[in-house]
Amino acid sequence: MGTHERWTRLLEVLGDKGRIEVAEAAELLGVSPATVRRDMEELARQQLLTRTRGGAVLSGVAYDLPLRYKTARQADEKHRIAEAAARLIPPGAVVGLNGGTTTSEVARELATRADLAEHGAGISLTVVTNAINIASELAVRPHVKTVVTGGVVRSNSYELTGPLATPVLEGISLDYAILGVNAVDARLGAAAHDEGEASANRAMARRAEKVIVVADSTKLGRRAFAQVCAVGDIAVLVTDKNAPEELVGQFVGQGVEVVCV
C-alpha cells in the first residue's frame, strides 16, 4: 500500500468514526505503528486531522477529502466507468464536465480517444468545465475546444463555484453533462456535500440535453447535503459491476438507463 493510499484510507476511517488510535490504524493498514505516527504527523501538518495522545481525531476539512487523496479510492472502478462514459459521447458534441476524480478520468479518456483526435482538422469536441485541473489537461489538446467558467476555486475539488460560475453556464447549451457526485439515490437524485459545487453542477445539468451521472457503487443509495439534480433528470447512470441489483433496479424503475462496468 502506497503512501497516498494509506493517507486516503486513514482519512476515510476518520470520516466514518471521528477518531482512531495508532495501534488500530497500524493493524488496519498493515504497517508498523511508527509508520502510522509519521503519516498522522504529516496529515496533521496539512491540517487534515488533529493529533491526540495515542492517535488522531477528525479535522474539519477531512469529511470532504481533497481531490489528491480521493484518487486512490475505487481507482479501477473509476477508470472503467470513465471509459464507458467517454464512449457515450459522439464526435462534435458539446460536453459539460464538473470536477472530481471520475470526471477527471472521463476528460483523459475523451482527450485520448483515437476517433476524436483523428476526426480531422479543427475542433472535434467542445468541453465546458468548472474544474481547473480538467481545463489544464485539455488545454494542450488542439482538437478539443475548452471553455472554463468563472468562479472561486474550491481547493478540495479544484472546482470553480459561486456567483461568477453560473453566468457562463446559463448562456450556453450542452449536448451532454457528465457529472461526478458524492451521492446518488433513486428517490432523492444526485447530490454533493458542498452547496457551492451543487449549485454550479445544477446549472450545468439544466443546460444539458442529456445528463450522465458517473458514480462508483459506494455512492449509490447514499445521501449528501445539497441536491445536484432530481433522479428524473438523469438519463444515464454509469457505475461499476459491484452495484447491488436491488439499487440498480430502483434506478431502472425510475426510467434511468444504468450501465454497470
Results as ranks from 00 to 15, higher is better:
18 G>C: 11
19 R>A: 11
20 I>Y: 05
21 E>L: 14
21 E>R: 15
25 A>N: 08
25 A>Q: 06
29 L>E: 05
30 G>Q: 08
31 V>N: 05
32 S>M: 03
32 S>R: 15
33 P>G: 07
34 A>T: 14
37 R>E: 05
38 R>K: 14
39 D>Y: 03
42 E>Q: 14
42 E>H: 13
43 L>E: 00
43 L>P: 00
45 R>K: 14
46 Q>M: 12
50 T>H: 13
59 S>I: 01
59 S>W: 02
62 A>C: 10
62 A>I: 12
64 D>H: 13
66 P>E: 08
66 P>Y: 04
67 L>D: 08
68 R>F: 02
70 K>P: 00
71 T>M: 12
72 A>F: 09
72 A>C: 13
74 Q>F: 05
77 E>I: 00
79 H>F: 04
80 R>S: 06
80 R>I: 01
80 R>T: 00
82 A>I: 04
82 A>C: 14
83 E>P: 00
83 E>Y: 02
83 E>H: 09
84 A>Q: 15
86 A>F: 02
87 R>M: 03
88 L>G: 04
91 P>E: 01
93 A>G: 01
96 G>A: 08
96 G>C: 07
100 G>Q: 07
104 S>N: 09
105 E>D: 12
107 A>K: 15
112 T>L: 11
113 R>S: 00
115 D>P: 01
118 E>K: 15
119 H>F: 06
127 V>L: 11
127 V>H: 00
130 N>Y: 03
132 I>F: 11
135 A>R: 02
136 S>F: 02
136 S>G: 14
140 V>N: 12
140 V>A: 13
141 R>A: 06
143 H>W: 09
145 K>Y: 04
149 T>E: 05
153 V>C: 09
156 N>Y: 07
158 Y>S: 15
